[in-house]
Simulated scan of single mutants.
Amino acid sequence: MKKHLLLAQAAPVTLAVVDLVKPGDLDRATPCAEWDVRALCAHLLEWGPPLEGAARKESVPPGDGSGDVRGQFERLAAGWSAPAAWEGMTVMATMELPADMVGGMVLAEFVLHGWDLARALDVPIAFPDDVLLLMYDEVARTADQGRAMGVYGPEVAVPADAPLFDRVLGLSGRTPG
């Protein structure tokens, strides 16, 4: 299946969790080291604009960390639902990168940070297997670079026969369950 269609499948799953976040949840801890829900939302709002701009092949500076998380996710999903967003090169803030690599980062925003929010709220989250297969490939492709940049933690050992989502999480440095 085409990557832009898989992102479109991931978006509503994450948006359903985003819709559950209430003001009283902002101080809840997430699986992300040193981030509560408020800090995770600020991260999403800071890096959402450059990722959104990258879908249009435009350089956009990071946001100020405030705003509407749902709206930001909707704009990301809309921008990256276009097949052309995944083609050629693009700009992430000021760095030129392969567009499909940045698209993989966007998918990670939905899948990994969707899971982070779900864990903080203690609600289940599940993505289609096709989405998780792509996510695993994307994390594997960028894991070393991500760890060097502090985006991913050290790989968490997960049994080879563990569910695919657990293997994705472990590869990204998250402890499943």
Rank of each mutant, 00 (worst) to 15 (best):
M1S: 14
K2F: 09
K2C: 03
K3Y: 03
H4Y: 15
L5V: 06
Q9G: 07
A10G: 11
A11G: 12
P12C: 08
P12K: 08
T14S: 13
V17F: 05
V18H: 09
V18A: 15
D19N: 13
D19G: 13
L20R: 05
R28P: 07
R28M: 11
R28V: 01
C32H: 05
A42T: 07
H43Y: 07
E46C: 12
G48W: 02
P49C: 03
P50L: 10
E52C: 06
G53E: 03
K57E: 05
P61A: 00
P62V: 03
G67H: 00
D68H: 06
V69Y: 02
S81N: 12
A82H: 11
A93E: 04
M95N: 02
D100A: 03
D100R: 05
M101H: 04
M101D: 06
G103M: 08
G104D: 06
M105F: 12
V106S: 07
V106Q: 08
A108N: 04
E109F: 01
V111W: 11
H113F: 09
W115A: 07
L117Y: 00
L117S: 02
R119C: 12
R119V: 13
A120V: 10
D122C: 07
D122F: 01
F127W: 11
D130A: 15
V131M: 13
L133I: 11
Y136M: 04
A140C: 12
R141W: 00
G150A: 06
G150V: 00
V151M: 15
G153A: 09
P159M: 08
D161P: 05
R167F: 12
V168K: 13
L169A: 10
L169I: 09
G173V: 08
R174M: 13
T175M: 10
